[in-house]
């Protein structure tokens, strides 16, 4: 890693011209483009092992499995997998923050987050980058990061908020069908009956990811939440839900904005 260093008299930034103009008008000086990376390895199938949350009863009323009877179904969370990604994100974010702090910045604006599997499914990469800014006249305080910049940031501040950080959370829920689904599957119950295990696995992934986000937010407000859920279906169903949001703090009481003006554009 070669962190950005201070080069007096020169700045670089990932800001668009309107965002650059708006930042200058707020007294935010761009210092440099700062980044944070993390490349990790997801350790084999053990990563996908799940901690069981619920055991489904045998639909036929049997006590256990047998040679000609599938084992009972269950619902769980792949904690190790989620922790691997969360650690990747928080480490990359910390590196971004450290790089910005080294420049004497107060915050990072216009942060972008890219997450990928650079070589195969077993590797993970998190890349964060943004523009480190110094705020004339501000004292010491925790360094903040935000995905917005320019006039949107100005609107946020005017409305009594201050940016806090970019936030990431995820949950991978796992459902093994077992004999429960075989019994309660569509063969026997007809049309339109609720398939509870499928509902459970989807709901668990989303609600746990949201809960984890709220826990990380710790009483601050989280907006702009982007939520993406992905399902892999087989005998075992995986639903991964990832959340990316902007954490903000309220520092002044709400000042309702003026009623908006409605316009009709003459463009297409």
């Amino acid at each position: 890693m070669s962190p950005a260093t201070e080069r007096p008299g020169v700045f670089d930034s990932g800001l668009t011209t309107p965002d650059f103009a708006a930042c200058l008008s707020m007294g935010l000086e761009p210092l440099a483009l700062v980044q944070g990376f993390f490349c990790g390895q997801l350790a084999g199938w053990s990563t996908y092992q799940a901690a069981v949350v619920t055991n489904y009863p045998c639909g036929y009323g049997w006590g256990g499995g047998g040679n000609d009877h599938p084992p009972p179904g269950w619902l769980g969370v792949a904690t190790a997998l989620d922790e691997a990604w969360s650690t990747a994100f928080s480490t990359a974010h910390q590196r971004l923050v450290d790089e910005a702090r080294g420049l004497g910045a107060h915050g990072v604006v216009g942060a972008r987050v890219e997450m990928s599997h650079p070589t195969n499914d077993r590797s993970s990469e998190v890349h964060l980058y943004g523009t480190a800014v110094r705020l004339a006249g501000a004292g010491a305080g925790p360094l903040w990061t935000t995905r917005i910049a320019g006039h949107k940031l100005a609107k946020l501040v005017e409305a009594g908020y201050a940016p806090a950080s970019v936030l990431y959370s995820r949950c991978t829920a796992v459902m093994y069908e077992g004999c429960y689904m075989e019994h309660w599957g569509p063969n026997l119950v007809g049309a339109g009956s609720p398939l509870e295990p499928i509902q459970d696995v989807h709901h668990l992934a989303r609600s746990r990811a949201l809960q984890d986000a709220a826990r990380q937010a710790g009483g601050h407000s989280l907006y702009d939440v982007q939520l993406a859920a992905h399902e892999m279906e087989g005998r075992t169903t995986y639903v991964s839900c990832q959340i990316l949001g902007s954490l903000v703090r309220r520092v002044r009481p709400t000042m309702p904005i003026a009623a908006p003006v409605t316009t009709v554009g003459l463009d297409d």
Partner: peptide
């Protein structure tokens, strides 16, 4: 008469 504007939306 239409008003000309430059929007700040991205």
């Amino acid at each position: 008469q239409p008003t000309t504007i430059i929007s700040f939306d991205n």
